[in-house]
Design a binder for these strands. Structure first.
Lengths: 346, 346
DNA sequence: GGGGGCCGGGAGAGCGCTCTATGCCCCCGG
DNA sequence: CCGGGGGCATAGAGCGCTCTCCCGGCCCCC
């Protein structure tokens, strides 16, 4: 690539018009004589012109880029930083988020830049990145309830949208699921199957979503005549599901139905049950949460409460776009409804 | 954010020096009087200055951004496009690639923008994106051997580095694994365990890596006195591993060792074996490939041929950086050595 | 037939930064 | 005491684009 990239000036000269006219054609604004439009388009074709985005965004103050930030908790050690990305994507959830975000951005010729904010320095880097005008705003997916990044962004007045409602209120828009209803759906399914003895593996206490799923589940079970439901806390990982179910089974060997707060843990639950000689769903029915890819590949395939992650991620991108363009100024919360997907496990 | 972001000019005024001096301090070049440096730094602090990247890259013709492209095959239908991202990240492999890339980029204040090129339009978009100067170059991970993107990039003279050697030679640098040696390591392990009857689940024929892993495995088995090794072709997915193993087991019920060309398929292999009443590794030893996260979470944990994906990804980023900065002009191939990680499955 | 509005196009001023050319000042040698 | 040189800062010219004026011509209406 020795030859310089053609500029607006070159195209203008080629077409025999002014820079401004070419710019108008490129951006499709104002009325330009159709004949001249063709002339310009031809010149663009001939010169192989591609508008320089740096120059454009220098004046428009827009970049067409958004930061997609996966934000961790406090202070991840230096060594763990490299593994953070791999760990994050080990959960099929994030692939779906990326898919949803890209689905919205692509038709608009926008692009996501991937950032990880699992340490104080990394968080500062995110803020700096946005302040420098590298991206128009941030889509933040927190893996930890105490994530300080949202507050940092709000404080700096940077456009951002969160996945899930933050524990501490922050002046940012977010999307979320009606977790309580998700818990309800799981309970209704187990009740409908006639399960008498029911237990649940919840997510981490500190996570609001865990609490709500649990509340929805318990309230509904109570209404169905089962006021007491044993709970074991998990950490949304397969291993934690195994551990929680092992505990539950020791205390309640006669369990007939289990609700796990995500599919990964439900998979662990199934493993433990099978190893202990219980058949799923004949002896014990299992309901998962998320309807992620593991729900389908699990043995047996999991009945799961579907979280429309792609739609939620797309909505995040849409909200951010509206904030960036000034179409929306006040923070807003968009709530999605879960749905029960019945497979074999319950 | 109503107040305008401070500019170099503002800082210069605040510090009582010229724009150029502030620029020198910010970029740490040339000799600037230490006293004045402090003065400037103080002014930067006070004004909360952050250099505008668009303006900078307009003159430096560098962006500090690289495109991380996951490139598919031919023409994915419109509906599938959204799911492509999710499918891609369902393979733990990509999470590791992202981790390796970010590990290299971050210390240099560079960032990856995620792109998917699974349709002709999407490929054009990648080329356009780079030609517009949105990113300095591309890191390309192809999921399909016939991927036309590398040729497109080479033709346009855009800096790019590939993961894995392309089938059709292309004037681009790439990193790759010594796949043949990987196959050899798997064979040696099964031979050392005394497996007599051995079979293998290969990757797709069209993929060069599959061929080489298979060749290394077969050649080594032959040298060990087993000239005939049954093969079933898989597609690097869990389902395809299940299907392939089902076929193999039907034809060779007395199999004692299985080499699967990646961990996902090895997991499928283990599932089938367990369902058919075979114990792993007591009855049948299983060796996987990649040493991905599923290798550790699989039951039993998989003995696997480790592919240093993070290192390879980091090397891609480093090569791209060298190409972009003109430190390297001719394409180069960097080869990595696999390593056997012994767990329980073999 | 003349004036005002409107439409299509051009000129030029920046956007915020880098970097070259230039100038100032001080120190040193003759 | 003067000329020369080197360190350190400044001035200013762009980088490629958008966008606000502004101007010329045409149409329409009175």
């Amino acid at each position: 690539m020795n030859r310089q990239a053609p500029t607006l000036e070159d195209v203008a000269r080629e077409a025999g018009v002014s820079r401004a006219t070419v710019s108008r054609v490129v951006n499709g604004v104002r009325n330009v004589d159709p004949a001249i439009q063709d002339l310009v388009r031809l010149a663009i074709e001939r010169t192989g012109y591609a508008p320089n985005r740096a120059a454009r965004s220098l004046v428009t103050r827009r970049t067409g880029t958004v930061a997609l930030v996966v934000s961790g908790a406090g202070d991840t050690s230096e060594e763990e930083q490299n593994a953070f990305a791999a760990r994050v994507f080990a959960d099929p959830f994030f692939g779906r988020v990326v898919g949803g975000v890209v689905g919205f951005l692509r038709p608009r010729s926008m692009h996501p830049v991937l950032m990880f904010a699992e340490s104080p320095e990394a968080r500062q880097e995110v803020v700096r990145y946005l302040r420098q005008g590298n991206a128009d705003g941030a889509l933040v997916v927190s893996t930890h309830p105490d994530d300080p990044l949202p507050a940092l962004l709000a404080e700096a007045g940077l456009p951002a949208v969160l996945f899930a409602r933050p524990v501490r209120p922050v002046a940012l828009s977010h999307v979320d699921l009606a977790h309580w209803d998700g818990g309800r759906l799981a309970a209704e399914r187990l009740l409908a199957r006639g399960c008498r003895k029911v237990a649940t593996v919840s997510g981490p206490w500190a996570v609001a979503a865990s609490q709500e799923r649990l509340a929805g589940f318990r309230d509904t079970m109570a209404r169905g005549g089962h006021p007491y439901v044993p709970v074991a806390e998990g950490g949304f990982t397969l291993d934690s599901g195994v551990a929680a179910m092992t505990t539950l089974l020791a205390q309640h060997p006669d369990v007939e139905g289990v609700f796990a707060a995500n599919d990964l843990m439900a998979q662990g639950v199934c493993q433990v049950l099978r190893e202990r000689g219980r058949r799923v769903p004949e002896d014990v029915a299992v309901v998962g949460f998320d309807d992620s890819s593991v729900a389908a590949t699990c043995r047996p395939p999991l009945t799961s409460v579907r979280q429309p992650v792609e739609d939620m991620a797309a909505a995040m991108a849409r909200l951010l776009d509206e904030h960036v363009r000034g179409l929306r100024t006040d923070p807003v919360a968009v709530l999605f409804e879960p749905e029960l997907v019945v497979r074999e496990s319950a």
